[in-house]
Design a protein around this nucleic acid. Structure first.
Length: 513
RNA sequence: GCGGGCGUAGCUCAGUUGGUUAGAGCGCUGGAUUGUGGCUCCAGAGGUCGGUGGUUCAAAUCCACCCGCUCGUACCA
């Protein structure tokens, strides 16, 4: 009875939903990738700065926790002085706080970057976690669209630095001012239409996935999907729907997301709403960005004007941009998936002003590191380089003197730059030591029992060669007694011999793979 | 959030129209082998059958609700 109770109280080891443990391979691959991104940002003259993962909730923006649902969307808790704190959900709002708080010390324009974990309290899915890494770059205190153009070019350079070929990605650019003008033109301006504006913008954002008919439904009465779920539409008039679909130019030759982009697209946008002031202004800005990109050699295949880009619906005030992957990505099940956006950003002229009252225009973007990693793993760009497991120094005798000698073998190898370790488990079961080495993928093992010690030598066992030989030996006694793939080496020659053998193994790997 | 599918050992799964003590493979631990990985053989540990409640003489099996996973959809600052 007591026993049974004890069993029932056994804790179940389980990871919180939407979080994940990271493997050595994943950590190494991500470090490598983050390093490549950092190099690009440094080259553009950006400097790192880091902010903490927690911020006071009101500083993060719209998520003021209420009594009923204090954790909706964002992870929040109350400090001991009752103030609400939240885990950041992006890196932009905390940067705005940092700039506002240090505005007197910071030389504007301020060019800065940072990588870090962000948290969102939402339903997780495959490839979507509640903690993930973003890599951010921002220029704060830069009012002109040349800063936005630079951001787009830097995104393009980053994609290529990560090994994504030209043509396998595209930076799509739009302008919130244009979208605002469109809303105005179809009579959706004003506070009372805020909800419908959101519905319209969301519908436009879905052009690439639902195509023109789905979007038409969402702009009108609504749309029913295969599972029978109904999404209410914006309820626009047929005229307004046509105007919007014409504006996006979707499917028309020479314009839109599937067309040439650039100047032709901008002309098309202008023509759709010739009298709308905001559309005109936004188009002028887009034209500038496009021309600057062209002048620097970034043609339509890399930086493209695309009227269906909407991006974050809250704080963007001007140009918005998005990096999209165009190559096929295969998931674990072997299915080809549409990968879509791996990063994006835009101009946020009002964020710092919330704190300072002064205009501090800014623009920036973030790259979804974890998401992009998934796609790049697919391309075989990262996480392929094998880290060789350490050389194992096995333990035959447990007395202090012998242990000291084993430690020294390991230390000598480390000093020569070779990964090495002394076996730290129960040394009395020698078989387990080699089993351990085998499972870990150790390339070599050093063995010294009393016989070898008397002669001042060690055995170096080539575990990789031995594994190969094991296929040819069926009998266990022979296998044990033949001691396959082992050489005797004088103690003084351990380091050079190990280095030589590791070199040979590396050559074999290079040939084989 | 809405709708569908699924939930049995650490893992992958079997378990008949409800019927004795819930099984297999792999993995794990010990041994054959005080000093050599693999192969083979022997032995062993490991289960609230996702949870709770109900129907029944009897539930892993049928029903309800809940939880979790998963697919689609919505949301995603």
């Amino acid at each position: 009875m007591a026993d049974k109770k004890k069993k029932q109280q056994k804790l179940k080891a389980r990871l919180p939903r939407g979080f994940t443990d990271r493997s050595p391979a994943d950590i190494r691959a991500t470090d490598q990738m983050v390093g490549e991104i950092r190099k690009v940002f440094e080259r553009y003259g950006f400097d790192p700065v880091e902010t903490p993962m927690f911020e006071y909730t009101d500083g993060l923006g719209k998520f003021l926790p209420d009594q009923d649902r204090p954790n909706e969307g964002v992870f929040s808790l109350q400090d001991d002085d009752e103030q609400w704190m939240s885990l950041r959900y992006d890196l932009t709002a905390p940067l705005a706080r940092h700039v506002a708080e240090n505005i007197n010390e910071i030389q504007l324009p301020y060019r800065t970057y940072r990588a870090g974990w962000v948290f969102r309290n939402e339903k997780p899915g495959p490839g979507r976690f509640r903690q993930f890494m973003q890599f951010d770059a921002d220029t704060v205190g830069a009012p002109g669209v040349q800063a936005d153009a630079e951001m787009c070019m830097m995104m393009a350079d980053t994609m290529e630095a990560l090994g994504i070929a030209r043509g396998d990605y595209v930076i799509r650019v739009n302008n919130r001012k244009v979208l605002d003008g469109v809303m105005e033109a179809i009579g959706l301006d004003g506070e009372e239409n805020a909800g419908r504006r959101l519905t319209v913008l969301r519908a436009i954002d879905k052009l690439d996935r639902l195509a023109i008919e789905g979007v038409r439904q969402l702009l009108g009465e609504g749309r029913k999907d295969e599972s029978g779920d109904f999404t209410p539409g914006a309820g626009l008039s047929a005229t307004a729907i046509d105007q919007i679909l014409n504006y996006t130019g979707w499917g028309e030759s020479g314009s839109g997301a599937s067309g040439v982009g650039g100047g032709i697209t901008i002309d098309n946008m202008r023509r759709s709403f010739p009298d709308a002031e905001h559309v005109k202004k936004g188009c002028d800005e887009l034209e500038l960005i496009w021309q600057m990109a062209q002048a620097s050699g970034y043609d339509n295949d890399r930086i493209k004007i695309d009227p269906s880009v909407v991006r974050g619906l809250e704080y963007y005030t001007g140009p918005v941009y998005e990096a999209e992957l165009l190559f096929d990505v295969t998931n674990e099940k072997g299915e080809t998936v549409q990968f879509g956006s791996v990063g994006g950003g835009g101009r946020y002229d009002g964020l710092v002003k919330r704190f300072t009252g002064q205009d501090v225009p800014a623009t920036g973007f973030s790259i979804g590191v974890s998401r992009l990693m998934t796609a790049l793993k697919n391309l075989g760009k990262f996480g392929q380089e094998d880290v060789v497991a350490p050389v194992l120094v096995t333990v035959m005798d447990g007395d202090t003197e012998a242990m000291g000698r084993y430690q020294k073998f390991a230390q000598d190898l480390r000093n020569a730059g070779v990964r090495a370790e002394m076996y730290q488990g129960n040394w009395k079961k020698f078989g387990n030591q080699l089993k351990y080495a085998d499972r870990r993928g150790c390339p070599l093992a050093i063995i010294q029992g009393s016989d070898e010690r008397e002669k001042g030598i060690v055995q170096i066992k080539d575990l990789i060669e031995g594994k190969r030989l094991s296929g040819e030996i069926a009998d266990n006694v022979t296998w044990r007694e033949s001691r396959p793939a082992q050489v005797e080496v004088a103690e003084a020659d351990i380091v050079p011999e190990i280095v030589r053998m590791l070199g040979e193994q590396a050559e074999d790997r290079a040939k084989g793979g």
